[in-house]
Design a protein around this nucleic acid. Structure first.
Length: 738
DNA sequence: CCGGTGCATGTTCAG
DNA sequence: TGAACATGCACCGGT
């Protein structure tokens, strides 16, 4: 079993990854039926039961063998083959149990019968790769009858190869509080099982393989994600993730290998009922097998380590099943609070901002304007009201705990005044909870439209232009439906808007930024990235103009450009546009409303809903503002605000934007009074026209803030922003050619 | 009366 | 045509 090849293999121990070894050894069984390649060192450790001790010492999941007291690692791929979950609680190692289960261990390859070998768990993204192949799972099934703990694999599976999760790994799915999940009416474990409540017999059968092998349009290639900071949920120990992304109302169910499934949340999913219908294939591939309709509780961990418990169950449906996750509302809502997802779409580099109303508003308030305050400080604006309209979270603390940690960003000191938004209050979570219960939709909207919040009125375009990846953010490229997204661990920051001018005959570009104090324009490196608050003193690129007292450079070229832009803007927008802007809400409220929830600004559309009789007229909850599916479904070509908004917001929007090449100006013109998500957030004419206006206003006021509200520094909450090239894009979009 | 639960039904889509 | 899915809705229990 030892190969003496060098250089042609990679040690499949993710903690090692060595490509050279004097000897290559075989490790755990792979899905393909082959055995993992291990370098000599890892292979030796594996063979001698020292794998865990060698590589996983610091990881959780260690247990003690009930029989021999040997320390066992029960969370990794190798150990699951050699760890037995005792009916009466605790675990036993293979050595101790072997005699009881010869059917299992006698079939294990190599020394696995004797090893307590452990393999990688350091990289969850590798886990599935190391998953035993289906045949092995079947083999292990035989053991089911031997060491049954009462968990009987469903024989009437709707799928002949119904996958089952490795219950060894799945033990982590069950919290101690669910020590007695009902499956077939039998307890998985007796009391005192310490949460170890399963039979080893249900090996992770690589059930997803059917999906993997049969890619569909919804099974997409993606690099190992590790969730990449997205708002995700990890099925602990299973190497699967459910990723709630703010992009649209989508749920990405992805494994850590190469498959990814997206499920756009329907109104039902995100509605007050709190039930999320799972695609059957996903449910059977990624979730534990269930035989009873009442299902089992699933512990799911989000990327912040927060655990959620959902009830995974099914309903009989025709002759099949409909799998649902119950109790997802708090989680989804929590994600809403913290998850505004910004992703860059290629080609085009457009930032797609997926946001939900509550989320966005909260984030916006809580970040750039919060002076470090938590963004759960929804304050008097009642931004969490919308949650109430759906479902009060069962675990508000979770909602709150999941909020962004970046609120004290150094970028956050400028811009809108928190006190102007929330009255200077810094309510506790309890307060927020209280408000959540008491404020209604109308209150919220009224408040957001109030004068206090006027400074929040940033247009969609403006908001997009201000978003930048945080300085140290390194994107993880995720491919979703053939479009690459850059996911960032760090939330975006609000940067200062600058202008790139291509004014020289050589075509060389220049970037200009204005001082927040004196409004003088300063020439910057073309790749400069200004913080939200930037003054002459921060001008490290030009020592002669690093003070507000220094004269401004000749702006002839720039001003010509800006003037031209302004004229163009005036032509295009016209008087009606202005009037519209005066009447219609704009800015964050509109943006937030339109982003996901549909254009709630169009009250008439919302008010006429009859889809949810229990919802009152004007209800703007997520259920009511989404176009119905089924009978009342809107046509694909439906141009109503709800449909268009949802399309724009979701990954569907990504497709649309790329496929259709929507002309922003046209759409903007067509949808008066709305934040048009079709519009190009970097509409350069708009940007420049605005720039001219702002510039002139600034000049008039002698020292006013150049860009009005544009300095909102800080960050959005749990946010991803396409940003590795944000500056590039920004420069492109704001480029002005003379 | 209201909200939760479980199932039925209509629609869409893939084979 | 059947499977999958979204959601409508009847029923039931709690308030």
């Amino acid at each position: 079993d030892v190969e003496v090849k060098m250089g042609s293999k990679v040690c499949m121990n993710a903690s090692c990854g060595s490509t050279s070894s004097v000897e290559w050894k075989k490790g755990w069984p792979l899905r393909s039926g082959a055995l993992a390649d291990l370098c000599f060192r890892c292979g030796s450790a594996y063979e001698t039961s020292r794998f865990c001790e060698t590589f996983h010492m610091e990881q959780s999941g260690w247990r003690e063998c009930y029989l021999c007291n040997k320390r066992l690692h029960c969370g990794c791929i190798a150990s699951k083959l050699v760890v037995e979950f005792m009916d009466y609680g605790g675990v036993g190692c293979s050595t101790s149990k072997r005699g009881e289960n010869p059917g299992v261990f006698s079939r294990l390859p190599m020394n696995m019968q004797q090893t307590n070998g452990e393999t990688t768990s350091s990289g969850d993204d590798k886990r599935e790769e190391f998953t035993p192949h289906r045949g092995f799972g079947n083999l292990m099934k035989q053991d089911n009858n031997v060491t049954t703990t009462g968990y009987t694999h469903e024989s009437s599976s709707s799928s002949p190869a119904q996958p089952s999760l490795n219950m060894a790994l799945a033990t982590l799915l069950y919290s101690p509080s669910f020590a007695t999940p009902v499956v077939d009416g039998n307890k998985l474990m007796g009391a005192g099982g310490g949460g170890v409540a399963s039979s080893q017999s249900h090996l992770f059968q690589c059930s997803a393989s059917s999906i993997l092998q049969k890619p569909s349009k919804s099974v997409l290639g993606t690099p190992p994600l590790g969730l990449a900071g997205s708002v995700g949920l990890l099925l602990k120990g299973v190497g699967k993730a459910i990723c709630f992304l703010g992009i649209g109302l989508s749920i990405l169910i992805k494994s850590f290998s190469k498959n990814l499934r997206k499920k756009t949340l329907s109104a039902s999913d995100a509605g007050r009922i709190g039930r999320l219908v799972l695609p059957k294939a996903c449910a059977e591939a990624y979730f534990p097998p269930i035989s009873q309709s009442e299902g089992i509780p699933l512990k799911v961990q989000d990327v912040r380590g927060k655990e959620w418990t959902f009830q995974f169950r099914f309903w009989p449906n025709n002759n099949s099943r409909m799998y649902v996750l119950e109790g997802v509302t708090p989680c989804i809502q929590s994600m809403r609070l913290q998850a505004v997802t910004f992703s860059r779409v290629d080609p085009g580099g457009k930032l797609i901002m997926g946001a939900r109303k509550a989320t966005y508003t909260v984030d916006m308030q809580g970040c750039g304007f919060a002076n470090g305050a938590s963004n759960e400080d929804t304050s008097s604006s009642g931004v969490t009201e919308n949650l109430t309209s759906i479902n009060a979270p069962s675990c508000p603390s979770q909602m709150l705990e999941g909020l962004p940690e970046h609120l004290g960003s150094p970028h956050g000191g400028n811009g809108l005044k928190k006190s102007e938004i929330n009255g200077g209050d810094d309510p506790s979570r309890g307060k927020e909870k209280k408000r959540t219960r008491t404020l209604g939709a109308k209150n919220k909207r009224l408040l957001l439209h109030s004068e206090e919040s006027m400074e929040l009125r940033v247009t969609w375009e403006e908001a997009q232009e201000l978003l930048r990846p945080s300085a140290n953010a390194k994107p993880t490229v995720v491919v979703i439906e053939e479009h690459e997204f850059e996911e960032f661990e760090e939330p975006p920051v609000f940067g200062k808007r600058t202008i790139v001018v291509t004014s020289r005959p050589s075509g060389e570009q220049e970037r200009w930024g204005s001082c927040d104090d004196c409004s003088k324009w300063r020439r910057l490196p073309v790749d400069a990235l200004l913080p939200a608050k930037w003054t002459c003193s921060d001008n490290v690129w030009d020592s002669s103009r690093c003070s507000c007292s220094a004269p401004e450079e000749s702006l002839k070229e720039l001003e010509n450009v800006l003037r031209a832009g302004k004229e163009y803007k005036k032509k295009r927008i016209g008087v009606s546009q202005t009037a519209r802007n005066e009447q219609e809400p704009s800015g964050l409220d509109a943006l937030a409303s339109a982003a996901v929830l549909g254009d709630a600004l169009d009250e008439s559309e919302v008010a006429t809903t009859t889809r949810h009789p229990r919802h009152r007229v004007g209800c703007s909850c997520i259920v009511c503002i989404q176009p119905p599916s089924g009978k009342g479904r809107h046509k694909p070509t439906c141009g109503c605000t709800v449909c268009s908004t949802l399309e724009r917001d979701g990954t569907a929007a990504v497709d649309e934007e790329n496929k259709e090449g929507v002309e922003p100006e046209k759409n903007e013109g067509e949808k008066e009074g709305r934040i048009d998500l079709n519009s190009d957030p970097y509409n350069r004419e708009d940007a420049e026209a605005v720039a001219v206006e702002k510039r002139e206003e600034s000049k008039k006021s002698e020292g006013g803030v150049s860009w009005g509200v544009s300095q909102g520094g800080g960050v959005l909450g749990e946010t991803e922003v396409g940003g590795g090239e944000a500056e590039k894009t920004t420069s492109e979009e704001q480029k002005v050619t003379s």
